[in-house]
């Protein structure tokens, strides 16, 4: 047990709160360990919010830049995961806004990759299992944008109505309404997959 694999492993043992404290103190290795630990969830969230994996990586990158700059202001280091995900949320929204500014890409995010459409209702269990996920993806992509955002922030990141409201710059009551509409639409679509 010598060299960097061991070091990597040792940092992986360190809990979030300690890593966040060290990172706030300027420790880049601790910050990178946090980034590695929560990167996949950040990337998955950004992908559903922006609609593409390439955008998701830009968002994760921007999120980490912002997180590094603002770590000093994180009051509860143990809550670093939720904090990172909230930044992912707002950066994803900003990202789409900026892209729209450059060109009208309004259709991009609702475009569904042909391969990801549910192909058929194959009775084989494996196929059913993955194709109902595909069905949910397709249904999600068809939702109005604001509804989809509310749903992703709630179901993927477990944000409160107030947190979602802050991220999207709408009222908590609107969040409640949009989330409900998203769920009703999705639940209806997915009824056949029960």
């Amino acid at each position: 047990m010598t060299g960097s694999p061991a070091a990597q492993h040792q940092l992986d043992l360190v809990p979030d709160a300690l890593l966040a404290g060290r990172a706030a103190d300027g420790d880049t290795a601790a910050f990178e360990a946090l980034a590695r630990r929560h990167g996949p969830l950040m990337r998955a969230t950004a992908r559903r919010l922006t609609g593409s994996l390439a955008d998701a990586d830009d968002v994760v990158q921007e999120t980490l830049v912002q997180a590094w700059k603002q770590l000093d202001g994180l009051r509860d280091p143990a809550a670093v995961k939720g904090w990172l995900l909230r930044i992912v949320g707002s950066r994803s929204i900003d990202h789409l806004r900026k892209r729209r500014h450059h060109a009208d890409l309004g259709t991009v995010e609702n475009a569904v990759d042909p391969d990801s459409r549910p192909k058929n209702k194959d009775p084989e269990t494996n196929a059913v299992n993955s194709s109902r996920i595909e069905a949910l993806k397709a249904a999600l992509a068809k939702l109005p944008e604001e509804q989809r955002r509310c749903w992703v922030l709630k179901e993927f990141n477990d944000q409160s109505y107030e947190e979602i409201a802050l991220t999207l710059n709408i009222s908590p009551a609107s969040v409640r309404g949009r989330l409900a509409r998203a769920r009703i639409t999705l639940a209806r679509t997915m009824e056949e997959w029960r």
Partner: peptide, 13 residues
């Protein structure tokens, strides 16, 4: 690279 976040977006785009 990133004097600002806006700069990062530009270079990515």
């Amino acid at each position: 690279l990133w004097q600002s976040i806006a700069g990062a977006v530009l270079s990515v785009v």
